[in-house]
Design a protein around this nucleic acid. Sequence first.
DNA 1: CCAGGGTA
DNA 2: TACCCTGGG
Length: 353
Amino acid sequence: MILPSNKGIKVGVKIKNLLEPEPIDFDRLKGKYIAIDAANALYQFLSIIQPTTGLPLMDSQKRITSHLSGLFYRTINLVEKGIKPIYVFDGKPPAFKAKTIQERKADRENAYEQWKIALEIGDMESARKYGQAAHKLTREMVDDAKKLLNAMGIPIVQAPTEGEAQAAFMVLKKDVWAVASQDYDALLFGAPLIVRNLSLAEKRRIPRTKQYIKVEPELVDAIKNLQRLNISREQLIDIAILVGTDFNKGIKGVGAKTALKLIQKHKDLETVIKEKGFEFEKSEEELWEIRNFFLHPEVTEEYSLEIKKPNVDAINTLLIDEHQFNPTRVEKALKRLEKAFLKKKQMKLEKWF
DNA sequence: CCAGGGTA
DNA sequence: TACCCTGGG
C-alpha cells in the first residue's frame, strides 16, 4: 500500500544494462589494495542494518550506529581474507551538484514523513522501505567512521571532491588494484576495475520477504566492457549524461541502451543533441563542464596506504564506552584483527629473506 | 550488513 | 557442516 518512490539517496549513473561483470573469487583479491568508496559503503550499511521497523541500530543516546557496526565487522573480514582496504571519503561536491543534493534532501524528507505515517498505522513493510530512504549520513557519523578506521589502523584518504574520482585516480596510478563501489560512477572517472558486492555474506535477503538471492563479488573490467561496446571512455561519459548522472538529469525516455545506440551512431553528445533536438535542464555549457569533471576531476596525491597496528584502547573507547557495543563481541573481533595484522607483518618480513 | 546460536 | 533464524546498538 501507500505511495511510490524511494529513489533518491545515492543513485549512481544508470548504465548497469550495458555492462557485463564477471564473478570474482576472494582469492583473487588476496594481497591487493582495494579503494573502497566510503560513502557508498556507509549508506549501504545504513539502509540494510535495520533490525525491525526501519530504525537503524542506535546507542543509548539514540545516535545511529549501524554504519559503525557494518564498517567494523566487514573491514575485519576483508583484512582477514588478506585484502588491504583503503577507505576513500568524499570532499566538497562540485558546484554543479547543488541541485541534485537539494533534490535528494527533499526526497529524504518526504521519505521521513512517510516513514512516520507508516509507523503510526503499523505498516511495517512501508516503514522499512521509507526508513531506508530517509537516512542521511551526517557529519558526526562520517567523523565516527573515520575515527574507527584510524583506530583500526586502516588507511583513509580524504578526496578533494568526489570519492569515486579519487579512488579511480589511485587505481590509474597503480597504488591500488580496484575501486570497490556498488555504483559505476568510478568507471566514468576512469577506473579500470570496479569490484561490486565486496562482502562476505553470499546471500542477501530480498527486502520484505523471506527469500534470499545470491550476491557474489563481481568485477567490472572497464577496458573489456568498452571494447565490447566499441566505445571510448569519453563516449561512455556522454552516454551517462544522456541517461542522467549525479550532476544532471537525463533525457526522458532515453535509457542506457538507447543512449548507447545514439552515441555509437553519432559519435558524441554534441552531435546527438543536434540530430535529435534534445533539451536538457542544464545548459550545454554546464554539460561540457560535467563531462570535463569526469575526465579531469581534482584529486590528491597526498595519501598513505600504510596499514598500522590496531589501537585497541581507542576502539574500545569509541565502540564500547561511547556507543555501547557488546564488549565480548568487540574483543573477539579485535583478536581476529590483531591476528591478521601480525600475519601480514610476518609475510612482509619473510619477503626480505 | 554481520555474529552467533540452534537444528538435523 | 550447512542451513536457518534472531539479535545487534
